[in-house]
């Protein structure tokens, strides 16, 4: 169970480059400022891509979690 109050879950597993970041950019506008999106992905590159995306767009990566075969990223909309 996640410790974060999640407003939306996004399954971005198996998408081609650069669709995970593109989808994230689109979906962030579907939650309110202050709300959290939980992202599921299998892309190792997303561990650097999502913080860089948050940095670029003024949002925040709260936490990343990894298990074999899956990566969870918690993103908070800041603006």
């Amino acid at each position: 169970m996640s410790a974060h109050a999640v407003a939306k879950v996004l399954d971005l597993k198996g998408l081609p480059c650069p669709m995970p970041v593109v989808k994230m950019s689109q979906e962030i506008n579907s939650v309110k400022v202050g709300e959290i999106i939980e992202v599921h992905t299998t892309d190792p590159g997303s561990l650097a891509d999502f913080p860089a995306w948050a940095d670029t767009t003024g949002n925040e990566v709260l936490e990343t979690k990894q298990r074999e075969g899956s990566i969870q990223i918690f993103v908070k909309r800041l603006k």
């Binding site: 650069p18 970041v21 650097a48 891509d49 860089a52 940095d55 670029t56 767009t57």
Partner: peptide, 14 residues
Amino acid sequence: TMLADVSISKGRNI
């Protein structure tokens, strides 16, 4: 442009 900026930010904070 956003994707290019993400790549640049990633490079700076790797």
